[in-house]
């Protein structure tokens, strides 16, 4: 059951007052503009035991994504496609408010929104990940761990997932006498497009990109918009406030333009296509 709860992020009254004053003057407390995303860096192949991995630092938010490739049965109804599953966990290391235990609804939402972006954009060509049609397919697990949380985990996790997939080395498996054999060789993951998510929050009547924790603690509503090279592929409105139709359309246009910038940077960091 989903229960409304007081935000676990507590923003001091004076700090919030400062934030609202800054916003009224067109500024944010860390000096960024409303459409400005924090500097970020991506490091690939940080986990050698994984088939692909990436560490993303978006401001002070830090996420590691690792890929493990296995084989298994295809999903029902998708017999001739490989399986791809994105999961996420906010580790107890990430903030004093996180306790160990099964994922809460916010973490489930995080994983599902990131998974949706990758799945709906058809980033990975799942048609190429079939060994025996209808019986045995590649199963790609992307597991994301949030090491430190300072806001906008949706985008940090999404960039980590995408970067890990772009830089992954897929083991070349073959069928011999009805058994799956690892040839010891690898090939790049079959990639069709690069989905990029952009998250914005609304505080009062102002919509701003890439919120930090204290901004999330003061937000009325949140929206995450994922674009691929082709257009929009996923969207999720979150939190208990609401948006006007015009605010959504404007955010969508911003997400598309900013998405192109981020996509270019992700390609650069992961050396994709070079």
């Amino acid at each position: 059951m989903s229960t409304s709860k007081r935000s676990t992020i507590i923003v001091e009254h004076l700090r919030k007052q400062q934030m609202l004053e800054a916003i009224a003057n067109g500024k944010r407390l860390d000096g960024r503009g409303f459409d400005e995303i924090r500097p970020f860096e991506i490091e690939i192949d940080v986990i050698k035991k994984a088939n692909g991995s990436a560490r993303v630092k978006l401001g002070d938010s830090e996420v590691i994504a690792g890929i493990k490739v296995e084989t298994g049965e295809p999903f029902e109804g998708l017999e001739n496609k490989g399986a791809l599953i994105v999961s996420a966990e906010v580790l107890p290391t990430a903030s004093p408010h996180i306790e160990p235990g099964p994922p809460d609804e916010e973490t489930v939402e995080l994983a599902r929104v990131v998974d949706r972006g990758v799945r709906e954009s058809e980033m990975v060509d799942l048609d190429e990940l079939v060994l025996v049609p209808g019986k045995i397919v590649y199963t790609i697990f992307v597991d994301c761990s949030v090491i430190n949380a300072d806001g906008n985990l949706f985008d940090a996790t999404s960039y980590a997932t995408v970067s890990a997939l772009l830089s992954a080395k897929l083991p070349i498996l073959e069928m011999q006498d009805g058994k799956v054999v690892d040839t010891g060789k690898t090939k790049p993951m079959p990639i069709k497009t690069i989905p990029i998510s952009i998250t914005a929050v609304k505080i009062g009547d102002v919509v701003m990109l890439d919120p930090v924790t204290e901004e999330e603690g003061s937000m009325d509503a949140r929206i995450t918009i994922t674009t691929s090279d082709e257009g929009f592929c996923a969207l999720q409105k979150g939190y208990t406030g609401s948006f006007t139709v015009d605010q959504i359309k404007k955010a969508a246009e911003t997400a598309r333009i900013k998405g192109q910038e981020i996509r270019a940077k992700v390609k650069e960091f992961t050396k994709y296509g070079s």
């Binding site: 929009f232 409105k237 006007t244």
Partner: peptide, 16 residues
Amino acid sequence: QVTLMQLDGNLSPDQF
């Protein structure tokens, strides 16, 4: 006011 919005699938800006 829009209180829930989700999307899966591909749309061009105009289609969106």
